[in-house]
């Protein structure tokens, strides 16, 4: 399976093995972007074109330009997501401009959730969300392969049970 950012760290030792997200999420987000931008561009082109004169139909270029920018943004954001399972904790790293890296020890997990909305299901995607006793813990991995999401869920609950510690 192709991954977003292949393991950049070639260093051996206890360096984590990073995994990226499958391309399905990027495909879904880009498709949604194109669809919405297309609708907007149509509106922005047709309405002023009819009301104010054909030259105003150029307004349609604005959504198109935004979509092109968004296309790139989505790609970079998708590429920035990665996660790693270490012996005792899960690492999640994400964000391009605002970077965030989260470490959640397995023993602290209270609940592991796998969710999949209708659109996500159509694209064959699922998200894994981890909850700890701290509400601020914001550990979610979107756009995983359902099989991978389930594998991750089972592994996390298994490890969480083995290393469990309460509050």
């Amino acid at each position: 399976m192709e991954t977003g950012s292949p393991a950049e760290t070639g260093v051996a030792g206890d360096e984590p093995v990073w995994r990226g997200l499958p391309p399905g999420l990027l495909r879904m987000r880009r498709l949604l972007l194109v669809v919405w931008a297309g609708v907007l561009a149509l509106l922005a082109g047709v309405l002023p074109g009819l009301l104010a004169g054909p030259a105003w139909a150029a307004c349609a270029l604005l959504p198109a330009a935004l979509a092109a920018w968004g296309w790139r943004l989505l790609g970079r954001n998708w590429g920035s997501w990665r996660y790693a399972e270490r012996a005792d904790d899960l690492l999640i790293s994400r964000g391009v401009l605002w970077r965030e890296e989260t470490v959640v020890p397995y023993g602290r997990m209270q609940l592991v959730e796998v969710t999949s909305g209708p659109v996500e299901r159509y694209f064959g995607l699922a998200s894994v969300q981890l909850h700890t006793a701290a509400a601020a813990t914001d550990a979610a991995i979107p756009g995983l392969d359902p099989a991978e999401a389930e594998r991750l869920r089972d592994r996390l609950t298994e490890l969480g049970g083995a290393r469990s510690a309460g509050l």
């Binding site: 605002w98 965030e100 914001d138």
Partner: peptide
């Protein structure tokens, strides 16, 4: 240390 639930690192531009 025993009460830490998760650790996060954040960095803005």
């Amino acid at each position: 240390h025993a009460k830490v639930q998760s650790v996060r690192l954040t960095q803005g531009p």
